[in-house]
Write a protein that binds this DNA or RNA. Structure first.
Lengths: 229, 229
DNA sequence: CTTGGTTATAGTGTCGACATTATAACTTCA
DNA sequence: TGAAGTTATAATGTCGACACTATAACCAAG
């Protein structure tokens, strides 16, 4: 399960943190349906914790953009919309483009080897048509490059905040995600540019790659029935 | 005081929210020194509120990146470093570049008029050498363009999260910020590009502008004594 | 005098209870 | 019957107290 790696809390010590991770997973996987209102007493009882700890956990979920709160009304799981998905893609295009540029400047030799390994895994899984694990590979690829930027705040911004949203949407669009071959080619070009230390080109290619992903997601969404709760 | 505009909480109803705004302002202005450890009992007593409310406020401050928390140890105000400042500039270059591109596509005529007015204000204040209020004008300019992108998540990401950090640093570098004339020229070019609906050019110019700001800030930092606590 | 361990203290994490607000159900009147 | 007002209920906001952890002070042995 390379699901929920790259999280600030490797070993949650406090109850609120454990709860946060539990709820986060439940939301991302869809155990808790999107748009659902959170009842604090109910959830607290279900997990056997106090309302105080739960509220703290909800606060952290709010940071991750997975729930929204209104004063005196309560918290609810975020709802997904085509509009928001496109917004996220625009942000990813800008930020991950920059990450790729910086990665070309700062990535170490070992990190590049690791990146190549991810590509090989991707290639192997395409050959076996294991489309279900290609999402993880794709995430790993993007994570590695973001990590390679060495910009701590950018890493935090993307890995901790934005990518929870990305996972949230992935889990709801993973129907026929057969853009893997194309994506693999694009990944390949990006890695090559990084290996050449060509930051400008790495950024351009990454932006192109994410724009292509966005266009593909749009096409998928158009031919989908509007799913209501 | 155009200080703390553009915040999600126009009218804070809950105690924790009021406290959050109070503390946020105190941190940005420097009333609470950078790097200072927060004592929950002490602060709670000082503001006459319960520790629970305070903890909630601290949680929100953590989202704004103004404090960091470690479990069982406590929270402390962030410390500023040259490294972090550069990281922020890199992120701004990418995200605000994208914002400018989107603004060129989506800004309304009225918003463009407003933008021009900001430029005029900037121009007037340069003539009068009111360098103290030029920071506000500069912030207003960038805020307007971000707002014009119409990307709600991008707006939130920048205006709510990143720009608190920008203000945090501004307040500590506002010594001789005499790049105003240069900045004004660059702002002018950006607005022109947006008016022409030339998103590509707007992005390029915005990135150039922010990179120039970064270089200038770097120069300032180099000829500054390392300030210890 | 220094170092290791022990105790004391302050601080954070957690909880249950009360106050206040929003929502649902109900009653009453047109 | 429908709509407005009122009451009742449930949920959120707030608080003070207890439990546990980390740090500081202290003491003892080398």
């Amino acid at each position: 399960m390379a699901f929920l790696t790259a999280c600030k809390l490797q070993d949650p010590v406090t109850i609120a943190d454990k709860l946060f991770l539990d709820l986060r997973r439940a939301i991302l996987v869809g155990e808790i349906p999107a748009g659902k209102k959170i009842s604090e007493p109910e959830l607290a009882a279900a997990y056997g914790v106090s309302r105080g700890s739960l509220r703290e956990a909800i606060g952290k979920l709010e940071n991750c953009n997975l729930v929204t709160r209104k004063p005196n009304i309560g918290a609810r799981i975020i709802d997904f919309s085509t509009e928001q998905l496109l917004e996220i893609y625009q942000i990813r295009e800008a930020t991950e483009g920059m990450a790729a540029r910086l990665a070309a400047e700062h990535m170490t030799a070992e990190e590049l080897v690791h990146l190549r390994k991810i590509l090989e895994r991707h290639h192997a899984e395409i050959a076996q048509h294991q489309s279900y694990s290609q999402h993880d590979v794709d995430l790993d690829f993007h994570f590695s490059i973001i990590q390679g930027s060495k910009n701590k705040r950018l890493i935090r911004m993307l890995c901790q905040d934005l990518y929870d949203l990305v996972r949230f949407y992935r889990f709801r669009l993973k129907s026929g995600f057969s853009r893997s071959e194309q994506a693999f080619q694009e990944h390949n070009l990006i890695v090559s540019a990084i290996e050449r230390r060509d930051g400008e080109m790495a950024e351009t290619l990454m932006r192109h790659h994410i724009r292509a992903s966005r266009d593909y997601a749009c096409k998928l969404l158009e031919q989908m029935p509007t799913s209501d709760t």
